[in-house]
Amino acid sequence: MTPTYDKVHNRFKFNGLHFSYDELKEVAYSLIKEGQPYERITGDFLMDWLDHRDYMYVTTSGSTGKPKEVKLMKQAMVNSSIATGNFFKLEPGDKALHCLPSHFIAGKMMFVRALVLGLEIDFVEPLAHPIFDYDKCYDFCAVIPLQLKYIIGHIHNMKNIIVGGSKVTKPLIEKIKKCEPRFYETYGMTETVTHVAIRQLQSKSAEKEVYFKALENVSFKTDDRNCLVIHAPKLVDEDLITNDIVELKSNTSFQLLGRFDNVINSGGVKLFPEQIEDKLQPFISQRFILAGEEDADLGEKLILIIENPIDPLNEILEMLKGLKSLDKFEVPKKIYTIAKFGETVNGKIQRKKTIKTVLEN
């Protein structure tokens, strides 16, 4: 029988203690009244989850546009939790570390998974460098890349770690290769109740996967732009059309190429900034993005925007011209600098806002 949103699993534990449905309401109220700011946000979420409604509103991160409120059915959140549990073979009583903020869907879903699957969840302050019991064994943990960067020396007792929210950089991927846990890059969004596809990263325990694989009851196709269309009837009522250009391997797996609205047409050649950024990761230590700027001859020319570069720009440009990994059209024609990238509240780069700021100045 499929679990429902109005039940609390009898094996659920929150920071070592089991709470019934009614007891959890008291916990939520206490967090709101007496907790730290991050605990008050969690209390608000739990009160929303435990009320009489069969839906709740969740705010998007705003990384690809203005933050907006999305109405999610609570049963869809339960269904997502079950799919994740089945993928990772999570069992009642398994232990999970929760170090994400409860503002957004990823943090909310960590609690929902625990409530539905009967996990014992340890909730710690969602800092860039989370502090937790480094000697405790955890079956499941979700982090953003920035957090993983800081805790990567303390994850030897973790089994499965999902990494999402922003791109996993090449330097971090190299560190992951030397670690024992299994690491997974996720693909999803608020509208799909977090991830609908997962790609395993290379570590000591696992080989790298090129393609994202769908969770159960999810399938894919593409539209006439080669953008991904998600069919997930247990999560959303209608197929969800994205702006992510992909290469389909099958109707349940794909390779992510880049955002349709980021594609640069330079002299008739289509350039995917995200793919070129991957090639440049080992050579530029500061944060950077690639973009297109209007050009009389090419239509658009490729530009590089770096946040507070250390090296002189002419030296960076000469270095890029000498890289054998870049095709000639992939070498930026100009470099701009910016003191601080536009960011969402959870640290994602706001690409469009940053590019607009640079080009207007």
Rank of each mutant, 00 (worst) to 15 (best):
L97S: 03
K108W: 07
S102K: 04
V70L: 07
P67D: 03
C99R: 08
L115S: 01
S102R: 04
S102P: 05
E91T: 14
V78F: 00
T59D: 08
M77E: 08
G62M: 06
D54Y: 04
A114E: 04
K71N: 08
G93E: 04
R53G: 01
K74T: 09
A106C: 02
C99G: 11
E91Q: 15
G107W: 10
A83T: 04
G93V: 03
S102L: 10
M47N: 06
K71C: 12
T84V: 13
Y55P: 06
T60R: 11
N86I: 09
G43M: 05
S61A: 12
V112M: 07
F45A: 00
D94T: 02
N86C: 11
A76D: 12
M56A: 09
S63N: 08
M56T: 10
F88M: 05
L46D: 01
W49V: 09
K95L: 05
H98Q: 14
S102H: 14
V58Y: 14
T60D: 07
G43F: 06
I41A: 14
D51G: 08
I41L: 14
M77C: 07
L100Q: 02
A96K: 04
Y57T: 12
M77D: 01
H98F: 10
Y55M: 10
V78K: 00
E91W: 12
L100A: 01
H52W: 14
G107V: 03
D94M: 08
F87P: 13
A76S: 15
G43L: 07
I82H: 04
K108V: 06
K66G: 07
N79G: 13
H98A: 13
A114M: 02
V112N: 06
G107P: 05
L90G: 02
S80G: 11
G85S: 09
M110R: 01
E69I: 08
G65Q: 05
M47H: 04
H52E: 15
K74I: 09
T64H: 08
P67R: 06
K66L: 13
C99V: 14
H103P: 06
Q75K: 13
G65P: 07
M47T: 08
F104K: 00
V70G: 06
V112Y: 05
K71T: 12
